[in-house]
Write a protein that binds this DNA or RNA. Structure first.
Lengths: 193, 193
DNA sequence: TTACTTTTTGGACATACGTTCAGATATTCA
DNA sequence: TGAATATCTGAACGTATGTCCAAAAAGTAA
């Protein structure tokens, strides 16, 4: 159990992931070299291989951690009415994604740089998240509070719309995140009612 | 004027752009080599430099052509009612983007690989397109047919939602493009009314 | 301090990159 | 046909890449 001697990996390990997250988001996976990541950490390139077997796995780890965190954080109180649950989902999605723009960016942009197996795994996690929203819509349709002809399409449309906030919103602008959230919540609610 | 002797560039030029479009979309700008593009064309790498001064300009050309085509194709009959114009916009956007998935993908994903000047130019074109939609929303608000608290946000939300179709829709699936368009049209209409 | 383990260095490896250019080839004009 | 032009080849350039590894350094336990 646990490291005993010469122990620095608790410090360097997270640093490596932070550096990779930042640089991949800024320049793209293919354009960022292992040497650049190492320089950001303050270490030589060879040392990175104590923390990842290769560059591909480093990318995959970042994505998987992000999706796992997302799934762990999302909540849905099925005892509530569907429109209340939908509103909570919208607020959660916007807030969660706004808090980690780099990870979100990578999770959407670097999918094509994953090996087929890694891609399938991440896609499965993403599907789980989408299913959570779709269930809310389905329940709302069943209880008569929502009216959408295809819940799968509505799910994808809503998620695309919400995630789009990340492409332009920055704190300190004309509107606060709460104001943005309120307007999106209103639009989403109308779109499915 | 015009080419007279030894003239093959009318053939090779378009081929180079087609190959670059396809490969950039599939693998990403940074991950695609000039040699790979040349191989797709059926030529040696050096020959590409008859058609572009460098790789960066090749990317920029693809984006600029795409945005210029988009702006040339979009129409807006301001004599019509705002809700009719919005419906036409939705249908146009979905159809136009569905017809050229590679160009759309590149125009969204490779922005960070443009030089600052090239980026500013493309952003200006994109802004023009967004302004077209926002004008429809503004006119609708003025005439009382729409109700949105911030037309800029609504514009971005709608475009994100519509462009999202490209990430999952493929012809031949469960639903036709017309069916998709109808449902999005309905959702968008509700969201702003 | 000594013995031991973990972590990092620094250099090497084979390979790939964007770009250039002199010379070869293909096409057109007269 | 021969002369002129447009296009392409093939090799070279300097540099950068992901990954590996023996040796050095840094940390911990006794």
């Amino acid at each position: 159990m646990a490291r005993t001697a010469g122990s620095h990996s608790d410090i360097t390990g997270p640093k490596v992931r932070e550096a990779a997250l930042k640089l991949f988001a800024a320049g793209g996976y293919a354009a960022v070299s292992m040497r650049a990541i190492a320089a950001e950490v303050g270490v030589q390139a060879g040392a990175l291989y104590n923390y990842t077997p290769d560059k591909q796995t480093l990318l995959f780890d970042l994505m998987e951690r992000h999706m796992t965190e997302l799934l762990a954080a999302v909540q849905d109180d099925t005892a509530q009415a569907a429109d209340v649950r939908l509103k909570a989902f919208v607020a959660f999605h916007i807030r969660f994604h706004h808090a980690r723009p780099d990870a979100v960016f990578i999770a959407y942009m670097e999918l094509r740089n994953l090996t087929p197996e890694n891609f399938a795994h991440i896609e499965g996690l993403r599907r789980s998240y989408e299913d959570g929203l779709e269930q809310i819509l389905r329940d709302g349709v069943a209880s008569g509070v929502f009216n959408v002809s295809d819940t799968k399409i509505a799910t994808l449309a809503i998620i695309a719309m919400l995630t789009g906030v990340n492409t332009w919103f920055r704190s300190g602008g004309r509107l606060s995140l709460d104001q943005i959230t309120a307007q999106y919540s209103e639009m989403v609610h109308r779109a499915v009612t």
